[in-house]
Amino acid sequence: MKKEFSNKLYIAIFLLPALILFCGVLIAPIGASAYYSLFNWKGPGAEKVFIGLANYTELFTSDRLGFVKALVNSLLLAVLSVGLQLPLALALALALGKRIKGERLFLSVYFMPVLISTVVIGQLWTKIYDPSHGVLNMLLKSVGLEAWTRAWLGDVNTALGAVLVPTLWQYVGYHMLLLYAGVKSVPTELREAAMLDGASDGQVNRYIVLPYIKPIIRISVIFAVTGSLKSFDLIYVLTQGGPLNATEVPSTLMIRMLFIAKRYGIGSAIAVLLIALCFGFALLISAIFREEE
């Protein structure tokens, strides 16, 4: 058996399809993107002109391009996701973890938005925000807050917030589900022992449940932050980065650079920075959680 199972030919045959697919589509493109990012290039068919790191310096110094603003927007979304989405998800998970009546129903409905395509969610919220016929403005009018009505997605001051709300609506359920699975995995004996010692509900949550589900909280934070950095679908559907770049994020800028401005070099530079940021933040968050222990 041992001999058969360590036969190099078998190992190669079983691994090859995965390696080709994975390296061809995920790994090699990282190198290719890094290479393209060093050129001034109008796209397939056009000539590449080597310009070194000029694309990167332009990204960080040109105000007109708006990359720094896009990066700040996505970091802002990340902070707000972690600050609003996760506490809400955690509160729901803790509440549902206590054998509540209708637990399954609540859980299933909360998770439902995760399954709806982001394009559908984006379209739906465009209708909700519609300045003249959307339900949000209608609701405000009907309760006498006419002064608050506005073109939520078209107003520079409210656009980023208006983009954040559907994001929360869609993803709270996802984080809630992960955290709920964690809460449910806390051994009953642990909870009961603490309760016998007279711990209140809040104390059980704080001293037993939270430390127990810390690895899941870490995963949730990583997903929320890298998800915000990568965010594209919802913003593309809702605002395409506008008005006046108020909701621009690196992904929407990248797509605009590539397929409208035909600047493949700088688009590739944005992609390279994004992957670096995603890995950087994932490592940083893991390190912070480890530090705390």
Binding site: S33, A271, F279
Partner: peptide
């Protein structure tokens, strides 16, 4: 962890 963004240009090409 690898975002799909990084593949867009190379695969498109």
């Amino acid at each position: 962890t690898i975002p799909i963004h990084v593949s867009i240009v190379p695969i498109y090409v």
